[in-house]
Amino acid sequence: MPRLKDATMQTGTVRGLQAFKFSGTKIGELGATEYTLVTIAVDTTGSVMGFDKELRDCLITAVDSCKKSPRSMNLLVRVIFFNSALPNGIDEIHGFKPLGDIDPSSYPDIVPDGLTPLYDACFSAVGATLAYGKQLMDQDFLANGIVIVITDGGDNVSSATTTMIKKEIERGTKGEEIESLIAIAVGVNTKFCATELAKLETEAGMKYIDAGDATKSKLAKLAGFVSQSVSSQSQSLGTGGPSQNIAATI
């Protein structure tokens, strides 16, 4: 459930399933004409115990790094934790907010607990991005999205399925509710679940990346990957992509 309900935020509901809730900055409060909606979903199940502090540091670094992007003022970032011990399996640390309004150092400690509602997390993260993105597009803003789900285990408790995730992602690629959407699953410590996690790519339509062991250096690289992916997706929205080679036909 959304926890931050300051005067500048509004709440919304993801269609279908458990009617997952999310929050986002009121559209009238927004100060740029186009936005990339960024969602970082972090697995906080019992199995992350032992590297939960490093995982939190990774999250903080990733969000801080986004502030260095030339298009940092065109980002709205949402962070959620997921494990089955949380109500509905998901805890929204903050909804879609401008980076300037986010203090990553205040993110709560990760308290490892419960099973892994991985598909629910993916479904709700994509769904919230589409729902909020549509609101922006309806108000003549331009919006695209990127969802990054960091996990160390396969799903074992979700209501959602890979097919449902795939349908949500396909909605995001039609350009009607949002300009474009990238969904990435990042696996850490995947020695025993790599095959299971690969289903997110083969069945759910997400991009899957194996980040290797949950070491400090690997997690630091993961933070860099997150911010670079975010920056790239934002640049794609604002400029039609990076500078392209000039064809010889000109």
Binding site: G31, M73, G100
Partner: peptide, 19 residues
Amino acid sequence: DEAECAPLSRVFTNDFWNR
């Protein structure tokens, strides 16, 4: 020095103008 120079893409936003 990026502490003194902002990428122009930030200057486009009302948030930058206000801040």
